[in-house]
Amino acid sequence: GNAVQEIMIPASKAGLVIGKGGETIKQLQERAGVKMVMIQDGPQNTGADKPLRITGDPYKVQQAKEMVLELIRD
Rank of each mutant, 00 (worst) to 15 (best):
Q62G: 11
A48Q: 14
G56P: 00
I18W: 08
L16F: 13
Q5L: 11
T24G: 13
V61Y: 00
P51Q: 06
I25S: 02
T46H: 09
N45M: 09
K26M: 06
A48W: 05
D57K: 10
Y59K: 15
M8P: 07
Q62R: 09
L28G: 00
K65E: 06
S12R: 11
V4P: 02
E70M: 05
A14R: 13
A48P: 10
K26E: 07
I39Y: 07
G21E: 09
G33P: 01
D74Q: 09
Q40D: 13
E30F: 06
D41F: 04
L28M: 14
V34D: 01
I72A: 04
N2S: 15
V68W: 00
T24A: 08
I18P: 03
P58M: 12
R73T: 15
V37M: 08
S12K: 14
G33F: 02
Q29C: 04
P58R: 13
P43G: 15
M67W: 05
I54K: 00
G47H: 04
Y59E: 14
G22A: 13
Q29D: 01
L16G: 04
G1V: 15
M67F: 06
D74P: 12
M67Q: 08
I9E: 00
E6A: 06
E30G: 06
I9A: 00
K20E: 12
I25A: 03
G15L: 11
S12P: 13
L28W: 03
R53H: 10
Q63F: 06
A14F: 12
Q44V: 08
V37S: 10
M38Y: 07
Q5S: 11
K13I: 12
K35A: 06
E70W: 03
V61E: 01
V4C: 08
L71A: 06
G15K: 14
V37N: 08
I54G: 00
G47A: 12
A3E: 15
I39E: 13
R53Q: 12
E70G: 10
L28S: 01
R31E: 13
Y59R: 14
E6L: 04
P51S: 11
V17R: 01
D49E: 12
I54R: 00
V17I: 09
M38T: 04
Q63P: 02
Q27F: 10
Q63W: 04
I18Y: 06
G1S: 05
R31H: 14
I54Q: 00
L16H: 05
P58S: 09
Q40A: 09
V34K: 00
L16W: 08
P58L: 08
M36C: 03
E6W: 07
I25F: 04
I18F: 14
G33V: 01
E70T: 09
Q44G: 13
I9F: 01
L71N: 03
Q29Y: 01
D41M: 07
P51E: 12
L71Q: 07
V17F: 14
K60V: 02
Q5M: 15
N2H: 03
P58K: 12
L69N: 14
Y59D: 15
P51H: 11
K13H: 11
N45Q: 10
R31S: 13
P58W: 10
T55Q: 12
G47S: 13
M8R: 08
K50C: 09
G56V: 00
M8D: 04
R31M: 07
Q62W: 06
I25P: 01
V4T: 14
A14G: 04
L69F: 08
D57H: 11
T24M: 13
A3F: 15
A64M: 02
P58E: 13
I72K: 02
M38G: 03
L71K: 13
K26S: 07
I54D: 00
G19D: 04
M38H: 05
L71E: 07
V34Q: 00
M67H: 08
V37D: 11
I18S: 07
A14E: 12
D57V: 07
E23R: 15
Y59N: 15
E23D: 10
G19N: 03
I39P: 09
G19T: 02
A11W: 04
S12E: 12
R73F: 04
K65V: 10
Q62V: 10
K50I: 08
E66L: 07
Q5V: 15
L28P: 01
I7M: 15
R53N: 03
V4D: 09
Q5T: 14
E30I: 11
K13L: 06
I18R: 06
P51V: 13
E66N: 10
G21H: 12
G47T: 12
A48Y: 11
V61I: 07
T24N: 08
E66R: 07
A64L: 00
P51W: 08
I7L: 11
K35R: 13
G22T: 03
M36I: 09
L28N: 02
A14I: 15
V68P: 02
I25M: 14
L28K: 01
L16Y: 10
L71P: 02
L52V: 05
D41P: 09
A14V: 12
E6P: 00
V68C: 04
M36R: 01
A64V: 03
A3I: 15
I39W: 07
Q63C: 14
G42S: 14
A64I: 02
A11M: 07
L71D: 02
L28T: 03
N2G: 15
K20Q: 14
I18E: 11
Q62N: 07
V61A: 04
T24V: 11
Q27G: 12
M36Y: 01
